[in-house]
Write a protein that binds this DNA or RNA. Structure first.
Lengths: 206, 206
DNA sequence: TCGTCAAGAACGAACATTCTTTTTTTGCCG
DNA sequence: CGGCAAAAAAAGAATGTTCGTTCTTGACGA
């Protein structure tokens, strides 16, 4: 091999990639994936067309990367969350989870929730994004299932409850929270958890 | 007024409009709003560019109409549902609701759920769609609130439960169901209701 | 016969991507 | 240790296509 290779450092490449990804996320949060133009991403990233296409071979690939990042960011918060030492009741677990989701959005200072919504829509048309979403959801479900098992053992749930069913139901409250939050930003985790608590509180003996 | 009007019948106009709307929905279910081209809608509707633009002044207006139809179709099923004579427990109400949502999809033989997902994403960028979604969600919430009040009165829920909180939480399970259904079409209403039932069943006395 | 409805060709803007040129980086040799 | 060559990286103009919308023409009902 007579290869001489004046390449740039691996960290530099990673940082550039991230720079583009972040710019694309900001654009997607504003305009959605398909109304975002490559020009907009290029402008927002402060780079050039040539540079962007050096890191992502097409717009669709960039969209996939953005979708993956957004969905992954939301999913990422949950794995860590459902495994504390002391197992809390479901309403508290839900409160913690929704709170984390909001925190992630604030941390990255990109409106991740909005981008996640775009990713759901994209999953309906791009099999690659669907697969990606499928995987992340499987992870979230697994985390909730672990939680459910622990909660049953801790006596927070009926002993004969099916952990998988409980997990699916708890998990499914998150998209609703995110959507409601889009429509009414004043929606907050406390109210949400309170609703679940009210649903779970047994009817008073008549 | 010197208006002479050789117009076509009002029903004809309505039918034409619906023809275009349905075509657009089918396209949107396949490719999303912004990847759907006007040519595709025109082809699918069997009409011409001139005709389509006679009924919708722009693509964005067509998108709004489609979004409104899809979201409205989902919302429409719920109003009727939460008011039966005999008030059922929450898990049964949820079962009935999710079942209805699936039925609507099958009835119109358009994948309404997919279009609804697109509408959520569009709400993040078009204030008109956001407003529309806001209104429909308010309606759904009101229906659930009515149900919650009745359920409390019927002894299915704790007497001190906040109907509004309960309504918000129940309502928020629907988007989750719809999203999960996209990712895994085998997801069914029974499983869903079972999860809620398990969550509500009190822990056995130790 | 007038005015709406519809068709479909035509148009111009917008856009994703490529190509050309310039700049930067790195390994090597003097 | 410092310039040199080679190749990657980046810039930005150029391109060819796609797409939303309009315009022209004809058909049809009142």
């Amino acid at each position: 091999m007579i290869l001489r290779m004046p390449k740039v450092s691996e960290e530099h490449r990673a940082r550039r990639r991230d720079q583009i990804l972040t710019a694309a996320m900001r654009c997607a949060a504003r305009e959605g994936f398909h109304k975002t133009t490559m020009s907009a991403v290029i402008r927002e990233s402060g780079l050039s067309a040539g540079a962007v296409y050096l890191y992502f071979s097409s717009k669709q690939e960039l969209i996939r990367a953005v979708a993956g990042t957004a969905v992954g960011a939301v999913a990422g918060t949950l794995g860590a969350l459902t495994e504390p030492e002391n197992v809390v009741p479901p309403e508290q677990a839900l409160l913690a989870t929704t709170s984390r989701i909001l925190e992630v959005g604030r941390a990255h200072d990109v409106e991740i929730i909005r981008v996640a919504l775009q990713a759901w829509a994209e999953a309906a048309r791009d099999p690659a994004v669907l697969a990606l979403l499928h995987e992340e959801i499987a992870g979230i479900r697994a985390a909730w299932t672990d939680y459910a098992v622990a909660a049953i053992a801790a006596g927070h749930l009926a002993a004969d409850a099916d952990p998988v069913a409980v997990a699916r139901t708890l998990m499914s409250m998150l998209p609703g929270f995110m959507l409601l939050r889009l429509v009414d930003p004043s929606t907050d985790p406390e109210q949400y958890a309170a609703g679940l608590a009210a649903l779970r509180r047994p009817a008073s003996p008549r």
